[in-house]
Design a protein around this nucleic acid. Structure first.
Lengths: 326, 326
DNA sequence: ATATTTCGCTAAACCGGTTAACCGATTAGT
DNA sequence: ACTAATCGGTTAACCGGTTTAGCGAAATAT
């Protein structure tokens, strides 16, 4: 910028005004604007956005904190967030928590120090205190997929309870009676509601058998899920269906059903919370719940942008997930 | 920082030395260090990394440019890159090209202006000129998955030709004779080599039938893949197997095989380049090629870090992919 | 003709850190 | 006892932009 100014015999300020588009307010002559732009082109000037950020306090960067970007659900969510952010001229820094509190903390501290303009995050169990630091720093924040109940912040989620209840009802109407639920024991509303939605409907229909409700620890899921499957297989009364509360438990669960020669759907039917791209390559029938991932990602960015632009209004969206019959 | 200095009646420089850990060189007394740190704690001081970056010219940020982060392969790759970068204290900005040249260009310009310390990218067809801008700016660069042939830059890839040839040989040994190949028409070595590896082996065994080699346009893949499947089904001489050159063609292809009632493996066998997580939920047997994604991601970061730290030596790694029998 | 605006641009402070040069007071060396 | 090195810190320039206040000249108003 100084180079351009020197070559043209003008001041750095003038160059800045032209190049940042603030010359319009009739502050700089058309003629000078042209000259500056031409010289910038010639010298192949590339702005240093770090300097700009320091000066303006705006980094045009948002932080995204998800559980695990290699997970199909979060990969898709992040993709749509990125594409939408791009429309606003924003760039995103993504980080993974692996459902771990320390990693969640590190991610947030890093993002805050990097001076991101806003953060979209997937809450981690017991992480509310940590998330509050974001609010304290007055950085806009949007929660997706889950949210902390008594936390005054934006969120975008689906109605997990409702769709789980609906799904369970659907299974019961089809004549299935002994329905198992396999769900992470993570104490976050999204998972809790999926589990509870089933349980409540089962109870109402007098079909609840607590032996069929399996809670899985995220870190030990491989072994615990296999054990759950074996348990269900050995249950004296035949189990009719298994409701898997997320795609990861589903994949692992079905793997062990195959391994233990449980035939789908002959022996048991399966339901998966989340659509999996490769359902289309498998020939087992699976009932699944499809979340509007694209809408969620885009809305998360839209809400975040409103907040970045100064809105103080808290937005809390609950989308409907769709039940698809396999 | 100035606040801390004022409260303590010392200079900003001293505070900086302490907080940035450069006080060790016996430049600042232990006593003063303690006081500064304590005060920093009390005031809940959080460094502004943007300011630091402007001053040092180091952003501790790397850029990653992939085709599409929601794709399982790139999602995994990005995940391992992020985890490895974290170990170096680095953060990553990810962007998607969707295999589009303009988006590739935008991504790179954005990253450069954001002053990233290095870039890991998945090349896009015809993008070499664009990628050269990175070199011109003296920003370290590592290509993954593919690379531009006459481009003096680092890369991390697998031996696509070799494993494709090996796979084809394996199919032939098993008695399969009419082997089809479905591959994107993208003019990048990775895809070309996968295709050519098959073709060469088929030719050598006098089994090559060009009608069975299908080239797919990335943007129109849905229709073109379906057409290819129908073509193969209607081929007067039964086709024994289809080699799909990437996971996305595979998923789409198998979907249309189901739709057109082609039984796997009875009617045709299938081979997929890339492992898919949900192979485990499907009961069709699939031979697949597993790339060492984790190693590739980690190595990409390691090489990039070497370059960031000043190494001028170009590193070019070719890993072996593994053939897995379904 | 003089006062007031407007125009087009410059000067300089500022964002929040880093760091090289420097400086006075001790300590060490001969 | 005099010089040199070390210690513990300060000062101020610098990174590369943005932005406000201001200034001389030209245009307009009175």
């Amino acid at each position: 910028m100084q180079d351009i100014a020197d070559k043209l015999g003008v001041s750095k300020g003038t160059v800045s005004l032209v190049l940042s588009g603030k010359a319009k307010g009739s502050r700089v002559s058309e003629e000078m604007s042209k000259k500056v732009k031409k010289m910038a082109e010639e010298l192949n000037y590339q702005p240093n956005e770090i300097a700009r950020s320091l000066s303006t306090g705006i980094t045009m960067t948002i932080g995204v904190v998800v559980t695990d970007i290699s997970n199909e659900f979060f990969g898709n969510l992040t993709f749509y967030i990125q594409e939408q952010a791009k429309k606003y001229g924003y760039v995103v820094i993504t980080t993974n928590t692996n459902e771990d509190l320390d990693e969640f903390n590190d991610a947030i501290i890093t993002l805050l120090n990097k001076q991101v303009d806003g953060i979209i995050l997937v809450p981690v169990d017991k992480g509310q205190k940590i998330a509050e630091n974001i609010i304290k720093r007055h950085i806009p924040l949007v929660q997706v997929d889950r949210y902390y109940p008594d936390f005054e912040a934006n969120y975008i989620v689906v109605d997990n309870y409702k769709v789980s209840a609906k799904t369970t009802n659907h299974l019961i109407e089809r004549g299935l009676k002994r329905i198992a639920v396999i769900c992470y024991d993570i104490n976050l509303n999204a998972l809790r509601e999926r589990r509870q939605g089933c349980i409540d409907v089962l109870k109402k229909n007098d079909l609840l058998d607590l032996n069929l409700i399996k809670d899985i620890n995220y870190q030990d899921q491989e072994v615990e899920i296999e054990q759950a499957i074996i348990d269900l297989k050995n249950n004296p009364n035949k189990v009719d269906a298994i409701y898997f509360c997320s795609r990861k438990v589903f994949i692992t669960g079905v793997k062990y059903m195959h391994k233990n020669s449980i035939k789908i759907p002959k022996d048991m039917e399966v339901v998966c919370f989340d659509k999996i791209e490769s359902f289309s390559i498998t020939n087992i029938p699976v009932t699944y719940i499809e979340q509007p991932i694209k809408k969620m990602g885009e809305k998360a960015v839209d809400v975040l942008m409103e907040q970045i632009r100064g809105s103080k209004e808290k937005k809390q969206y609950v989308f409907e997930a769709e039940l698809k019959y396999g």
